[in-house]
Design a protein around this nucleic acid. Structure first.
Length: 422
DNA sequence: TCTGGGGTCCTAGGACCC
DNA sequence: TCTGGGGTCCTAGGACCC
């Protein structure tokens, strides 16, 4: 790979909602995080009103009401389906691609002749819009980090219409002085001030900085990043996703809880999800960690945080085993009298699914367990999540359920929520 | 009143061994 | 019991990403 193009969907979650509500084009739109907590996607019109990414919803509600911004609770299933459509479209247009996140893909662009890179990027942009209704921006460059830079410039400067080819070195030199360090992929809140102290403020400063200083300030990660800015590839295209190393399932509660049974029910719900995720990824976990948390923003004295972990005797993805382990840990760490805001489970030390899980003392393959989980997953896949569950999930109502007051219909995954055309 | 969820990688420091 | 250095493994926490 000598040339790479980064395709990034514009305000992806907002764009997904707009596909099914075309009258919201040109209107300010935001999408909230789980539990209607923060703003995690903003249309250009919403940004123009001064709204910002990751700001708590309640803090800007007045602004949102005043300007009649259209607000959606997150509908992750819908976005994941739309993402698959975008990626499938891209896949047909290039020899290789890396799906980097739900709304981004790196494309191998080495086959495109130098003077046709912009034209080809534009063609791809057009095809994705036509097939999916999702607008994208594309940056072309010799490394992933520079492609990120190009994409960012393409997205923020209307004159380029969402496409910028930064493949020639004189163009790279021309543009890097206009990119702030903190806008470079891999430079975050902690590194930017450190660099600034040494007068390194732009991507151009960074590219020209003393390698020993960079190594000292940012370690090996910084070294690689600077090399990429100079046009030397440090990150290659990862066509096949590497196997998962850990799985986390957690949610903030819709409201604070103090009742033991309620908190436990939430935790076990996440354990069930974790088991299903393991099986879908064909992995087994050897290590299970549970945690219960209070409100992160509470006074220090009032903040509860309980964590417990166990090494399982055998790597497994059998839900009842995971439930039993989690239940045991929960009893160990439960603390009466506190207010809890969140529960979660972390599955780590993952290994590939074994064909026949056995123990030293019982060498029979655990076929029954496997058959049970296979049947369970198949039913939930076919008839919708929650069709078949565990006794721990039986309850008339779940007090912990996150808020999602403004959620759009599941247009693509529920028969009863399909879009109706009149 | 109300502040996301799910990941990866790297480093430092402790425990332990020879 | 004292002396010394180096290696490995594990874990916790920081930083970053979307």
């Amino acid at each position: 790979m000598e040339m790479v193009a980064l395709v990034d969907c514009n305000a992806f979650f907002c764009s997904c909602e707009r596909v099914f509500k075309p009258h919201l084009r040109e209107k300010p739109v935001v999408v909230l995080s789980s539990n209607d907590g923060c703003l995690i996607a903003l249309s250009a019109e919403a940004k123009a009103l001064g709204l910002k990414m990751a700001v708590p919803f309640f803090k800007v509600k007045h602004l949102i009401d005043k300007h009649k911004v259209h607000v959606f609770s997150t509908n992750y299933m819908l976005y994941a389906h739309m993402s698959r459509r975008v990626m499938a479209t891209l896949e047909a247009l290039v020899p290789a691609l890396e799906v980097y996140s739900i709304d981004e893909a790196f494309l191998d662009f080495s086959h495109v002749p130098e003077n046709e890179r912009t034209k080809e990027a534009r063609r791809i942009q057009q095809m994705v819009l036509q097939h999916t209704g999702i607008p994208v921006s594309i940056g072309v460059a010799p490394t992933k980090t520079l492609a990120k830079v190009a994409n960012k410039l393409a997205k923020t400067h209307p004159q380029w219409n969402g496409v910028l080819d930064l493949s020639r070195s004189h163009d790279i030199e021309r543009f890097l002085p206009f990119v702030w360090c903190e806008d470079v992929w891999g430079i975050g809140r902690a590194s930017a001030p450190k660099l600034s102290k040494y007068g390194i403020r732009t991507a151009a400063d960074l590219a020209g900085a003393d390698p020993f200083l960079i190594k000292k300030l940012m370690g090996i990660v910084g070294t690689r990043l600077v090399n990429e800015l100079k046009g030397e590839q440090a990150f290659s295209l990862e066509v096949a996703p590497p196997p998962a190393k850990s799985i986390i399932c957690s949610r903030s509660f819709g409201r604070p809880l103090s009742q033991k049974e309620e908190v436990k029910r939430a935790l076990l719900y996440h354990v069930v999800r974790g088991g299903a995720k393991l099986r879908r990824k064909k992995r087994q976990a050897r290590h299970l960690t549970i945690y219960l948390r209070g409100n992160r923003y509470a006074q220090k004295e009032a903040y509860v945080s309980r964590t417990a972990a166990v090494q399982l005797p055998l790597a497994t993805h059998y839900t009842p085993t995971l439930l039993a382990a989690a239940d045991h840990l929960f009893e160990k760490v439960w603390q009466e009298g506190a207010l809890y805001a969140k529960a979660g489970v972390m599955l780590t030390d993952l290994t590939p699914e074994a064909a026949h899980p056995t123990t030293l003392f019982d060498l029979r393959p655990h076929q029954k367990e496997k058959a049970l989980m296979t049947a369970l997953d198949a039913l939930n896949e076919r008839y919708g999540r929650g069709t078949l569950g565990f006794a721990s999930q039986l309850q008339k109502e779940n007090l912990w359920r996150p808020k999602e007051a403004l959620k759009s219909p599941n247009y693509l995954t529920r028969w009863d929520e399909l879009l109706t055309v009149r």
